[in-house]
Nucleic acid binder design. Structure first.
Lengths: 333, 333
DNA sequence: CTGTTAGCGCCTTCAA
DNA sequence: TTGAAGGCGCTAACAG
């Protein structure tokens, strides 16, 4: 069970390693039909597989793209990864991933590891798109997705956060909801949260942040619960609606409401950004905004491979690629 | 922005590449404090990062472990991957993954790609643990998880399928359920499904398969719906309970029941193998069996690195490692 | 303590 | 159509 090298099979066939190398690289024009066939047979019989590490070193190109993921347990991420993998596979690239688990320090470490690994491209689902680490990245070999930087240095693929939420919120308004609230983890400068909130404001025309409910992403939901209760008490005779910034926020929201013995759509209306499996199953289905996560993965690979494989140092200015979403109307408001 | 090599920094410092190499490998005993410090400074200033491809070739070891995943969109898989990543990271390994999307042909292709990549270890979440491709794998460098082969050739990490379901089912029986049904995709020879069903039979002591409900994993649920209706009609005066083989089966089950205008726990009782985020949120919470997926990921890396890093060709006989589960009792029966 | 040098497995001009 | 040989960036004896 010794590891075979190109030398071994060259010897077995009775040619030089160069010829075998040509064969491996499909440079068939450089050999006779006879040798070509002989090589084929030997490789097949010995089940020889060229060492791709050596190959990568020699060609100084690593057919590998690195992915830095903010949090792999996020369902959005799985779908994106799935798209990334499929697109890479069809182009002969492997994908190595790293997971920051929501920590931007870990994210920086991860990016460096990936760069050291000599990956030929980097796809980044950032914890913090303004992480200084990204300053050193070239737009020729990287692409971001989901969250965008204020001053993007590299191409970024996002969903249509602003418009989607604006349209969705307008639907709620038309359905008679009088007081709307945007529920989210602290906005900070995280673009997805901010843009969605801006879409919300665009539809509601609220002048201040009285209709923004934020809470920390911890196990406890008492804080949120109190805030919700206050709201519900404040407008006893109005139709109150909530928009959850994402699926996990929605879960917390529903949880808290349940503890308050409140049900949708009777006591309150609700919608969310993100369409998860269970949202269509639970009793009154959740109306929400569906984003095409798999396609985002596909698109990101497309973008990066185009850059890598074509021109060298285009150094083109960063593009913002906006992906459409889909309204999914069910019974939650 | 030229790529620096070990030569460059050797020249910059004024030593030979060997010394620098020693430094990189923390062989500090082989140099004076002075040169050590000089090297440190230069590396820091130039932001030099050794090319790990070259390093791998020279040492003939690839600090990379490959993961073949059956279906990355499965939440179980995300959690496992998360564990794998964390464990690998702390040991200095990168992880490259492949996704079979449920196809065992693709799985075979993926495994081969991974082997070619010279990964030093292989973690396999198999579509089909009896895939012929696994015959050629060595137990010294691979480990399986979740699904097990009839005649395992390599270490396999599984959850305690049989016992968990048996215990869980017994709880349902003690709660007064008279007719219990096991709902699943076709069992085939997939160990997780079979073992869980056997646990079910162990508790219920049913002598035949009258209480097994299987259906195909397609978008339509009419088939399942009819079967459920038949059952519900057959035992009008009994307490009927269902156990879903996994989270996705449960979703279909709930969906079908909803279409039949039936609710749990009034009309029927229900439980499931797998504990997903939403199961604790929806109105009557779902009682279920929680498996420690993240820990399975951890464990698999632990297993494989121990084998890789210690002895060479132990070729020990394959072990079956069974991970405990946890009952989560909520309100669904 | 430090440098020389021969590889690791494969690729790729350059000659033959 | 084929082979010889140098090189990719780094490692690890072996000398000194």
């Amino acid at each position: 069970m010794e590891k075979l090298t190109i030398k071994d099979i060259a010897r077995l066939v009775g040619v030089s390693t160069a010829t075998v190398s040509y064969y491996l690289n499909k440079n068939y024009s450089k050999m006779s039909k006879v040798t070509r066939e002989k090589i084929r047979v030997v490789i097949e019989e010995t089940d020889y597989r060229p060492n791709s590490v050596a190959r990568n070193l020699a060609k100084n190109e690593n057919k590998m793209i690195g992915v830095s993921v903010a949090d792999i347990t996020n369902p959005f991420t799985s779908a994106v990864l799935s798209g990334i993998y499929d697109a890479c596979g069809s182009k002969g690239y492997q994908v190595v991933f790293t997971n920051a688990s929501g920590s931007y320090q870990r994210e920086a470490v991860n990016i460096n590891k990936l760069r050291q690994e000599e990956v030929s491209g980097l796809i980044i689902d950032p914890v913090d798109p303004d992480n200084p680490i990204y300053k050193v990245l070239s737009n020729d070999t990287s692409v971001m997705l989901d969250r965008q930087s204020d001053s993007p240095k590299i191409d970024t693929i996002v969903t249509d956060n602003f418009k989607s939420v604006s349209v969705f919120t307008n639907k709620m308004i038309k359905s008679g909801y009088e007081e709307l609230f945007f529920v989210s983890w602290p906005l900070g400068s995280i673009s997805t949260r901010v843009k969605r909130y801006e879409g919300f404001l665009d539809a509601t025309q609220y002048a201040n942040n009285d209709h923004l409910v934020t809470f920390e992403d911890t196990l406890e939901t008492v804080d949120l619960q109190e805030k919700l209760q206050t709201i519900m008490h404040k407008f006893p005779n109005k139709k109150i609606g909530f928009f959850a910034m994402n699926g996990r926020v929605l879960i917390k929201l529903l949880h808290a409401m349940q503890d308050l013995r409140l049900s949708y759509p009777e006591d309150y209306g609700v919608g969310a950004y993100e369409d998860l499996e269970w949202m269509g199953v639970i009793k009154p289905g959740i109306s929400c905004i569906h984003q095409y996560s798999y396609e985002i993965g596909l698109k990101s690979v497309d973008n990066i491979l185009k850059k890598i494989e074509s021109g060298k140092n285009t150094n083109a200015k960063p593009k913002l690629i906006v992906m459409a979403t889909k309204m999914v109307i069910r019974k939650s408001y």
